[in-house]
Every structure is written in structure tokens, then in C-alpha cells.
């Protein structure tokens, strides 16, 4: 939420629907950001040393020169870079993301296929850990300096301190190999022919371990943040006022303090949505989850410019949307706090 925009919200909120105003403001800011990102990304991707043609022929163990020249032409990389840039812009304007030579398929198809497993994984793990984090954070604040608080603080720290692939590998050993309760990895049971609810359950079983691994990490982060923010507020004036009014501790915690504590949390979640692609790479690798994180890493290693640029653009749009939602929520919480 930008200073000027929230100011504007406060002034105009009697006449214009505030949510609309926030949205318009945010989108106005988003357009130059996206424009800049388009330019920066294009050149950033080309900054990575290594030739896409070399990377393309890597799967074939190399190639002779004639073949490479042919591929370079096909990829449009034999044009001067400014011409390439122009072609790229005009294609993006037509929402054409081109062809992925590394995947032998249109870029959009490649990305869309990989998008939803990642979104599913993230929505689940972040959602659950948000709820858990808020609950644990508030509980810790409520029982400040007691064993409950200390246990929560300590546990969240230990969880936070473990390398993610460590947790992942250990979970596989325990739950998949030893107990045989859950699958080792993958998205679904291939060739099971399941549909409907049975299929959803199958995906859910496959998702449990990766979501748990990711969720434990986020849970630790959110608990820490909520707890820290709540402690900040314990002695603030409005909390004292609320307490003086004789409100119960529970009401003070959940209705008065939590909204304040949620602001930094929301900011953090918004930010994390932006970097979701990198955050899940390790987990997607350990659990063979066919998601976007791995695609990004693969595309970067393969110098698959078209896929990379499309992912980068999508990630920008995602961040803009996430920030918009965070802004709306923040403004909403702000209003509620003002009313209080």
C-alpha cells in the first residue's frame, strides 16, 4: 500500500468506493512496472552466459555446425538483438509467447500445464501455514513468557532452521519407504484411470508430503512474524485502552491486536508470492512435483529464452495481482482499525 494511495483513500472514501480506488491506483502504478520488467527481463535473460543453441543440442550430445546454424535461424537468434527485441515486443502484444524448442511445444501450453500443480501446492501449504501461524503466534502472545510461548517459539525456530531438502528426504524415508503410507513423489498415480473424487484424493495423497515440507517452513516463518508483531503491540496505548475498558483478553488479542499484526504478515505473503517460483524448486525436485519452479530452473539451464521470458512476465503479473490483493486487505484492515 503506497503512502499517497492510502492518503487518497482516506480523503475520498466518502464519495468513491474505496476498493475501486485502491485498485485503480495500484493498476496505474503497475503499468510502468510491467513495461520496465519487459525490457529488463529481455536483456537479463540474454546476460546469462551460454548459447541457447549449445544448450539445445546438449540433449543430443552436441551437433555439427550446419545443424546449429539452422537451429539458430529457427530460433530467430541470428537477427541483431534490437530486431529480436522488437519481434519479442510485438509478439507479447499479441499474447504470442512463441515456441519452446526444448519442449517441442508452444510456450503457453508448457507453462499452463505446469502452473496449476505449483499453485495447488502453494495454496495448500501457505493457506494451512497461515492459519496455523496466526493461531500459534497469537497463542504465544497470549501466554507470553510461559512454557507454551517458549515451546511455540522454540519449535518454530527449530523448524525454520532445517534445510528444506533435509525435511523432505526424511519425510520420504519415514512415510514412503518405511511406513509405505504415502507415495514417494509425482503428481498422481500414472495410468490409474481414476476420475472425480477418487482422482482428487489420489492427488491429495501425492501432495501431502511436499505440502507438509513446504508448509512446515512457512509455518515457522509466519509464527515467528506474528509472535514478534503481537509482542510489539502488547503494551501499546490502544491495547491498554481496550484492556481498561474491561474487554476480555481474548477479544483484545483477536479483535484489536491481530489486525495490526496482520499487516506485516500480509506484506510478507505478498512478497513471497512473487518469489514462489524459486521457493518451490528444491521441494519440486525432491518430490518430482511437475511444477513451475522446476520448469524455471530447467529453462534457465537450457537457456530456453522463450519459456524464461514468459515465466518472468507471468511472475510479474502475479506479483502485481498479489500486491493488489494485499493492498485491498490492508486498506480494509486500516479502515477497521480506524473505526475501532
Amino acid at each position: 500500500m503506497d503512502a499517497s494511495s492510502s492518503q487518497a483513500v482516506r480523503v475520498r472514501r466518502k464519495t468513491t468506493p474505496w476498493a475501486f480506488q485502491v485498485a485503480v491506483n495500484r493498476l496505474k502504478q503497475a503499468i510502468p512496472t510491467i513495461a520496465c520488467v519487459l525490457v529488463v527481463n529481455f536483456f537479463l535473460v540474454r546476460l546469462i552466459p551460454g548459447d541457447p543453441v549449445d544448450a539445445f543440442v546438449a540433449k543430443a550430445q552436441g551437433a555439427d555446425q550446419a545443424f546449429k546454424d539452422h537451429i539458430r535461424h529457427e530460433m530467430g537468434l541470428d537477427e541483431p538483438i534490437w530486431v529480436q527485441f522488437g519481434i519479442y515486443l510485438s509478439k507479447v502484444a499479441h499474447l504470442d509467447f512463441g515456441w519452446s524448442f526444448q519442449n517441442s511445444a508452444p510456450v503457453l501450453d508448457v507453462i499452463l500445464l505446469r502452473l496449476w500443480p505449483t499453485v495447488l501446492l502453494l495454496v495448500f501449504s501457505i493457506g494451512v501455514s497461515l492459519l496455523g501461524g496466526v493461531f500459534l503466534g497469537v497463542t504465544a502472545a497470549r501466554y507470553s513468557q510461559t512454557w507454551k510461548d517458549r515451546t511455540i517459539a522454540f519449535m518454530s525456530m527449530v523448524l525454520y532452521a532445517m534445510p528444506a531438502f533435509w525435511i523432505g528426504l526424511s519425510l520420504i524415508v519415514v512415510f514412503s519407504v518405511k511406513l509405505r503410507l504415502l507415495p514417494v513423489g509425482g503428481f498422481d498415480t500414472v495410468g490409474s484411470g481414476k476420475t472425480g473424487i477418487a482422482y482428487a484424493l489420489d492427488v491429495g495423497r501425492h501432495m501431502t508430503l511436499p505440502a507438509l515440507t513446504l508448509g512446515l517452513f512457512y509455518l515457522a516463518v509466519y509464527t515467528r512474524l506474528v509472535r514478534a508483531s503481537m509482542f510489539e503491540l502488547l503494551d501499546s496505548d490502544f491495547v491498554r485502552t481496550a484492556r481498561a475498558k474491561g474487554l476480555s483478553e481474548r477479544t483484545v488479542l483477536w479483535r484489536h491486536m491481530l489486525p495490526h499484526a496482520l499487516l506485516p504478515l500480509l506484506t510478507l505473503v505478498g512478497v513471497q508470492l512473487g518469489s514462489l517460483l524459486s521457493g518451490v524448486i528444491v521441494i519440486e525436485t525432491v518430490f518430482s512435483w511437475p511444477g513451475l519452479g522446476r520448469l524455471t530452473f530447467q529453462a534457465a539451464l537450457q537457456r530456453d529464452y522463450n519459456v524464461l521470458l514468459a515465466i518472468l512476465l507471468m511472475s510479474t503479473v502475479l506479483v502485481v495481482c498479489a500486491n493488489l490483493i494485499v493492498d485491498l486487505l490492508s486498506a480494509w484492515i486500516d479502515r477497521r482499525m480506524d473505526v475501532n
Binding site: 503506497d2 529488463v40 537479463l44 546476460l47 517460483l277 524459486s278 524464461l308 506479483v319
Partner: peptide
């Protein structure tokens, strides 16, 4: 100034970490 800085910040956020790391 604030807006400009925040736009820059946002731009950095939109570039996946792994890309920057790899570059």
C-alpha cells in the same frame, strides 16, 4: 521518490530468485 523506489523494489521482486542467482 517513494513511489519510484517502491516500483524498483517491486521489479526486483518479480524476478525469480533463481534467475538472478543463476545469472
Amino acid at each position: 521518490l517513494g513511489a519510484l523506489l517502491m516500483r524498483g523494489t517491486e521489479m526486483f521482486q518479480t524476478i525469480p530468485d533463481i534467475m538472478l542467482a543463476l545469472v
